[in-house]
């Protein structure tokens, strides 16, 4: 069964609180599970992916979406 990933909307959340909240959510998930994260354009999309990858999570995709970005992460 394919389960749609959870979504964490971090629109409007400044750096680094956005990365911190994403890490907390990922830490509460099972290893290997997927999380879709929405971040703002600009600093957030530049800062959040490396912050999550540094902690062992995998960035699977990064797509623009109406002025924001949708990141797909796999929990490490």
């Amino acid at each position: 069964m394919i389960v749609a990933p959870e979504t964490l909307d971090l629109s409007g959340v400044p750096c680094p609180a956005n990365a911190a909240r994403a890490l907390l959510r990922l830490e509460g998930m099972d290893p290997g599970s997927l999380l879709r994260i929405i971040v703002d354009d600009g600093e957030p999309v530049l800062n959040v992916p490396p912050a999550l990858e540094q902690e062992g999570h995998a960035l699977l995709s990064k797509e623009p979406d109406a002025g924001r970005w949708v990141l797909l992460l796999r929990r490490g």
């Binding site: 680094p16 890490l23 600093e43 912050a51």
Partner: peptide, 18 residues
């Protein structure tokens, strides 16, 4: 400083957000 975006800053920010 929990307002910085490097790894140590994010670690501090993680405590704030928790």
């Amino acid at each position: 400083n929990a307002s910085t975006v490097h790894r140590m800053g994010v670690a501090a920010g993680r405590l704030i957000e928790r």
